[in-house]
Amino acid sequence: MRVIKNKSIIDDEWSLKREIGNTDPIPSGNVILPFPFWQANRDELINSKKCHAIWIDGSIEIETIASDLQYFALIALDFPTFKDGRSYSHARLLRERYDFKGELRAIGDVLQDQLFFMERCGINSFRIRDGKDIEKALESFNVFSVNYQGAADDSVTISQQRKFK
């Protein structure tokens, strides 16, 4: 399976576990686990290996995962449909408020025309929806060369370029 990471296409090191019972055995390998599973098996997981990944959707409050961020190499943000924009706020909070440095990945209904917004919010890897052209999706990053407002990316905003500050 291929994903976009830092604007290039790579083979994915992670597999995504959408559903798993909280009492099921801990899967082996690099697995992105649902956050409730992490909560239920937290101590065991922390002792078992070093590298962890979870996925969350828009309904959780980002504050509830804040104290565990140090353990996560990757957090996947779910877009059940591209119209559900809550994960954009999650991404910015994770990057800007909680200073999360790991991989932030968009999963779910992830489409070319939203990548630009996602990237600006601090998402740096993308699992493009099945059946969509991942090469073409890369073009999304080059659509706009300037941005009005600051966000989680390091883009120099227009007001900075106009040298107001």
């Binding site: 591209f82 119209k83 559900d84 924009g85 954009y88 706020s89 910015r92 939203q114 630009f116 917004f117 996602m118 990237e119 600006r120 919010c121 706009f144 941005n147 009005y148 407002q149 966000a151 227009i158």
Partner: peptide, 11 residues
């Protein structure tokens, strides 16, 4: 200007 293509608030 702030709201144009606001990355967080377009959906």
């Amino acid at each position: 200007q702030w709201s144009t293509f606001h990355p967080e608030f377009s959906f």
